[in-house]
Amino acid sequence: MSDAESHAFDADMRRANRKKAVEGRSVIFKIKRCDGPGKPSRWESFKVPVEQGGNVISSLKWIAANPITTEGTKTTPVVWDSGCLEEVCGACTMVINGRVRQSCSCLIDEYAPLEGDAITLEPMSKFPVIRDLWVDRARLFHNLTRVKAWVPIDGTYNMGAGPKETPEHQQMRYALSECMSCGCCLDACPQFTKVEDEEKWDTSFIGAHAISQARLFNEHGTGKLLKGDRYEELAGAGGVSDCGNAQNCVKVCPKGIPLTESIGAVGRGTTVHAIKQFFQGKE
């Protein structure tokens, strides 16, 4: 099945669920909880009435106001991360029913259409848990620094317009630039593993997210100037060649970023860069 097809398949199934959703039902949330780093995890279940158009975040809000488990014991409100609630900020990533995705766009009707259906929520698996469903994604942002994901402008003073660009090229950059650093692509990637020791971040696999951002900046008229630096980093340990081409990243990316194309493009770039370096005899 091609990517487009598998997305469509998913969407069809979810749409079908939406059609059969029962009004006024309650569903069960099974949530993996943890009080803090180094503390043990535990599961708690909550029975939550479904509002019209309700999603995982609105359900978590309901739980925050009524933190009572299905066993009837009072517990603490669940801690989670969110922001925009419209799938552009990238904050609310969680593992839902075993798969990573944004929780704000996760409609209850699509996942638990019938009375008593269950939804499991777990924190992302590749980042250290801060508490409950909230994880620390500092490494993901650190990786953007690794590939110098910026345009090296001369300063913020007025110096005229930027480079001209064809609409096709703009569309291509825009598609990459929509990445919201949610980390879904990393959580689903078999090659990207949890690394808690910050010292090791720079040599651990960087993941599709930063590889794709490197490509974005290599494609900008001025951003290109740092191409060499980016390829050096991506040729090194934890760089693009650590990718095992499982292509899960592109399947789970909520923004539909063409990640595998970016991996190919950056692969080509590093190859060419290495050959050039070899013949120019640079260090």
Binding site: W150, V151, I153, M159, A161, G162, E165, T166, P167, H169, Q170, R173, Y174, S177, F217, H220, T222, G223
Partner: peptide
């Protein structure tokens, strides 16, 4: 100049 992909 900072690279915002404005529509063209």
């Amino acid at each position: 100049r900072m690279g915002v992909p404005f529509n063209r």
